[in-house]
């Protein structure tokens, strides 16, 4: 498991707990984000939380809007932009 992936999974659980949301099943790369238990506002909090922890918001750095569907796509975006920043 990559460090970025681990930070994201931790953050999802933390945001869910703080906002009384329940994460449905075990999270895998195929997990559909909007069926994972976080609602749209939960995702906004997650992105803000990850900006604190990883120091980047890849969605701000992108030239075009991108909305990942699965956890795997979400993690891949963060991995790509973390490498670029590093």
């Amino acid at each position: 498991m990559s460090d970025v992936r681990e930070v994201i999974i931790d953050s999802i659980h933390r945001v869910a707990e703080q906002n009384d949301l329940e994460i449905s099943n075990e999270l895998t790369d195929e997990s559909i984000l909007l069926q994972s238990g976080l609602d749209s506002l939960g995702f906004a909090i997650l992105v803000a939380d990850l900006e604190d922890n990883l120091g980047i918001d890849p969605f701000v750095m992108m030239d075009e809007p991108v909305y990942p569907t699965t956890l795997g796509e979400f993690v891949a975006i963060y991995e790509k932009f973390t490498k670029q920043e590093g």
Binding site: Q18, L41, A44, I45, V47, A48, D49, E51, D52
Partner: peptide, 8 residues
């Protein structure tokens, strides 16, 4: 507002 979100 994203900063406020974390403070709820």
């Amino acid at each position: 507002s994203r900063a406020m979100l974390r403070n709820r």
